[in-house]
């Protein structure tokens, strides 16, 4: 098992966002967490990235190490977990090239960085055309490509993706998810968070259903896709 969370609880002041949830992700898997707006999906990813503090009693391990021992920047640089946050959060004032390079800030493996950059450009040729453009001037689709590309530049083992489908036209969405599947085939584990449940379940092998900060259902994605509860609540009947 690569990532495991036990009793993960998070509060923002008085608001309890996660009520002690349990989940795990195996090496090489694609796992999704689906749930309505406000269910706590993004909070789960922020907690893995250590940008929000988990409460007392939480236990999280990654590759046998205690995740809670790592500050956020080392979750990326030492554990190899990258996180493409909700809303892309690109650095609009930096160029495409700078955004990609920034994600390699802590990496010291020069030749491999070059190889990874070539890979990003082969997946998203549009980014190479826009290489000197400021990220803020890209179209929505191009920004999403850059967000995924940036996460690729720092991912050594696992990618956390927060609603990568948001704001994408269907055709582009297919491109992005095809690319992600290739990336997964090359060995990167993926934890995906989506409101678009149908798409997430079609893309992943296993899924968790999050409701108001608790996991209410889990299982193989193919089973969840035909589950009456899931169909009613998340797949439009």
């Amino acid at each position: 098992m690569l990532l495991s969370a036990e009793n993960l609880a998070v509060s923002y002041g008085n608001i309890k966002a996660l009520h002690g949830i349990n989940f795990e992700v195996d090496e090489g898997e694609i796992v999704c967490i689906i749930g309505a707006n406000g269910a706590g999906k993004s909070t789960t990813l922020w907690a893995i990235s250590r940008l929000v503090d988990a409460e007392e009693g939480t236990s999280m391990t990654f590759a046998g190490k205690n995740l809670l021992d790592f500050p956020p920047e080392k979750v990326v640089s030492e554990l190899g977990i990258s996180h493409a946050p909700e809303g892309r959060r690109l650095f609009d004032n930096l160029t495409v090239k700078e955004n990609l390079h920034l994600a390699t800030f802590a990496r010291k493996d020069g030749p491999e960085i070059k190889r990874d950059l070539d890979r990003v450009f082969s997946i998203f040729p549009r980014l190479e055309e826009r290489i000197s453009q400021k990220a803020g001037t890209l179209s929505g689709g191009e920004q999403q490509m850059l967000a995924v590309g940036r996460a690729l530049m720092s991912a050594r083992r696992m990618m956390l993706l927060d609603e990568p489908s948001m704001g994408l036209a269907p055709l582009l969405m297919k491109d992005v998810f095809d690319a992600l599947r290739d990336i997964n085939k090359e060995g990167t584990t993926i934890l995906l968070v989506e409101q678009n449940a149908r798409m997430a379940l079609n893309f992943s092998q296993r899924g968790y259903v999050l409701e108001s900060g608790s996991i209410v259902l889990e299982g193989n994605s193919s089973d969840l896709l035909v589950d009456p509860e899931v169909k009613k609540a998340y797949l439009g009947g």
Binding site: S49, R50, L51, P71, P72, V76, R89, A103, F105
Partner: peptide
Amino acid sequence: VVVPLMGISI
């Protein structure tokens, strides 16, 4: 906020 996600220590 998201700078640490780049592996950079604030």
